[in-house]
Computed example of a mutant assay.
Amino acid sequence: MGTSVSTRFSHSIDPKVLDQAAEWLMQLNASHVSDEDRRACARWQQASPEHARAWARAELLMNKLGGLPAELAMPVLDRPAQLDRAGRRKAVAKLAGLLAALPAAWLGWRLFDRQQWSADQRTAIGERREIRLADGTHVILNTASAMDVSYDAQRRLIRLRCGEIMIETATDTAAVRRPFYVETAEGRMEALGTRFSVRQEEGRTQLAVFESAVRIAPRKMPPSGFRIIQAGQKTGFSASAIEAEQISARDDEAWAHGMLLADRMRLAEFAAELGRYRSGVLHCDPAVADLLISGTFPLDDPERVLSMLVSTYPVSAVQRFSGYWVTLIPRA
């Protein structure tokens, strides 16, 4: 049986070695590469098993570069010799960060890229956007989100491809009232005159209701398996099951106001949430994963939030690859 990509590249590699691999990848794809450059790279690969593993990742990424966004592929492949020092360093940092995160970063990037750029409405990482639909419904798209809007004579429909949205439905102006639906990969929700948020996660949809109610109908459950979630409640569901309701809190809608509210939130969870609003990788060392965080933090400035963490809690933020990869560790 063959070895999967995730198995072959599951072991961590020293970030300094990945940085070197990224440098070599750029060098070998420069227009002025020489045979001596290639021999030097081969010697570097043979110098240690870790070098060889890093280069295996580089080759995997190289085989897939044709599908990378142009802003990364162009600096890396087309004219690296013409980049100034800062520009080259930035390109190497992004490339090294991708090597560090393979295969998850690659798969996530491709999935997000494919889902986002063909959508009717979308936001970039760290962006929030407010739109008003034809019937007056107000929608806020959170960071890295994409959705399609489909209105016809029978129904009003939003398909959430990825990310998170906040919806405040308007009274339908059509002669015959049309139901308002939101669809995700896991199923369909019907708004019962309401304000609510929907978040698409991997294999799971998260719903929080702030006004009125929402009816959930998972894709693989019978019609009788629907459930109505009332204002002040939240839940998650898969294609075949609905979780027990919980009480929603202010932090469930704080993102719509540009804030991250933490009330004794584990640092690991805090880092995962903050990481949605910044480019790159934000990692939490297991030694500080259970540190409890409280406070109100501005989502529009993730780097400021990291500074606030470091100044308030016994942690340090170690940056690699020009800040693309940040690890929260215990303060020395």
Score class of each variant (00 low, 15 high):
Gly2Lys: 15
Thr3Met: 14
Ser4Phe: 15
Ser10Arg: 12
His11Gly: 02
Ser12Lys: 12
Ser12Thr: 01
Asp14Pro: 12
Lys16Met: 12
Leu18Tyr: 01
Leu18Phe: 10
Leu18Gly: 03
Asp35Thr: 12
Arg38His: 12
Arg38Glu: 00
Ala42Lys: 13
Pro49Glu: 04
His51Ile: 00
Ala54Met: 11
Arg57Trp: 08
Ala58Lys: 01
Gly67Tyr: 07
Pro69Met: 05
Ala70Ser: 15
Glu71Gln: 13
Leu72Thr: 07
Met74Ile: 15
Leu77Pro: 09
Arg79Gly: 11
Arg85Asp: 04
Ala86Ser: 11
Lys94His: 11
Leu99Glu: 01
Ala101Cys: 10
Pro103Leu: 01
Leu107Ser: 13
Gly108Gln: 06
Trp117Asn: 03
Arg122Gln: 12
Arg129Thr: 05
Glu130Asn: 15
Asp135Gln: 03
Gly136Trp: 06
Thr137Gly: 05
Thr137Ile: 06
Val139Leu: 04
Leu141Phe: 01
Ala144His: 05
Ala144Thr: 06
Asp148Gly: 05
Val149Asn: 08
Val149Ile: 07
Glu164Trp: 03
Ala174Arg: 09
Glu186Met: 14
Glu186His: 08
Phe196Asn: 07
Arg204Val: 11
Gln206His: 15
Ala208Gly: 04
Val214Gly: 04
Ile216His: 08
Pro218Glu: 01
Pro218Lys: 10
Pro223Thr: 06
Ala231Asn: 03
Gly232Met: 06
Phe237Glu: 07
Ser238Gln: 09
Gln246Asp: 10
Ile247Glu: 02
Arg250Ile: 09
Asp251His: 14
Glu253Tyr: 08
Ala268Trp: 04
Glu269Met: 00
Leu274Val: 08
Gly275Trp: 00
Gly275Lys: 09
Tyr277Ala: 04
Arg278Met: 02
Leu282Tyr: 09
Pro298Asp: 02
Leu299Cys: 06
Leu299Asp: 12
Pro302Thr: 03
Leu309Asp: 08
Val310Cys: 13
Ala317Lys: 03
Tyr324His: 14
Trp325Pro: 04
